[in-house]
Write a protein that binds this DNA or RNA. Structure first.
Lengths: 176, 176
DNA sequence: CGGAAGTTTCAGTAAAAAATGAAATTTCCG
DNA sequence: CGGAAATTTCATTTTTTACTGAAACTTCCG
């Protein structure tokens, strides 16, 4: 399958972005391709379109599947697995954030907790102790908040975001 | 300077986290070291403490300086530059988010805009067009919101976060 | 001005990450 | 069951990224 110039640009940029945020470039590109294709593709097609080894596609899809960003589908009369991604940008974002929270933020919180509870914590300077403590509190607040936000319906969330500045006034006790 | 076990653990984890989010490991480690040290350190001291080449420290500090995460200080009677980082976790977070928005989100928005305005956009499938469009809208809403949030005082922001679920009710028009 | 202390640059090297492709494995159908 | 199609695994290679250390540069002081 040949890519149009815009699709190509989008995919390349997406790959680049992925790389900057710690996602393998090919994985991000495959995701972008599925996103724009808007229809299930077979691994072969993906490999051909992106000029990437079939095995690389296999591994990348495995990763995307494990993150739930991609699902397997079957097409009538085709024995091969086909893959498609969530089309709703909001849902996608949610999945990505949830995944990273679980895989990265949770272990960090665990580490901070262990540090703070460790007996050798007493050896640390007051500054270090306070900063570790504050870091944990900060991350805790942020994750609690994020969890709550992610539990909302996209619609509600949308409203919240669009409010933005107004919330500021609300909090300060001013009139809207 | 010898690291205590906890400081070491924190620094190693921070470096690891950085790596997962697209930040050079050494850069992240230096930042963590300055964060816990809570006092200005000379580049030499950093290099020695982290067992890293002096030149590496120089380049990494340059990067941290360019991101405004680190500042240069001078100590009485010492000709060497000393470096320290923002101690306030909130301020730190703000700096990091602002930086990434500018450096990464802005170019993405630009790319999406160019795609959507390109004449060759007409060649694209309806699905692709719609998804590119929606992606842009999503990122726009999110950045606008983030900009507003980051403009708030830490205190206000803190309240907002702590509200969390209550805001949900507020939006839905229920009683608190 | 001379030179010591401090810093940065950058070419070369080392380490890490990603991609390939051949071989092994699984799946499915007659 | 036999074997073709599809898929996955993994040792090897390629590519990318990070790090080092020698050399160049800058700053500051006597």
């Amino acid at each position: 399958m040949k890519l149009t110039p815009i699709t190509e640009r989008f995919i390349l940029h997406w790959g680049e972005m992925g790389a900057r945020w710690g996602v393998n470039r090919t994985v991000a590109q495959i995701h972008a391709l599925l996103f724009l294709a808007g229809a299930p593709l077979a691994a072969d097609e993906i490999a051909e379109t992106l000029s990437v080894a079939r095995s690389n596609v296999s591994m990348s899809l495995k990763e995307l599947l494990s993150w739930r960003l991609v699902k397997v589908t079957h097409l009538m009369g085709d024995r091969r697995d086909h893959f498609e991604t969530v089309g709703d940008v909001w849902a996608l974002f949610k999945l990505i954030v949830e995944g990273r929270m679980q895989r990265e933020i949770a272990p960090t919180l665990a580490m901070l907790g262990e540090c703070l509870e460790s007996p050798s914590m007493t050896q640390e300077s007051p500054v270090a102790r306070q900063r570790i403590q504050e870091t944990r509190e900060f991350i805790q607040i942020l994750t609690t908040w994020a969890d709550e936000m992610l539990r909302q319906e996209p619609e509600t969330l949308m409203k919240l975001l669009k409010m933005g500045a107004k919330i500021h006034n609300f909090v300060r006790g001013n009139k809207p």
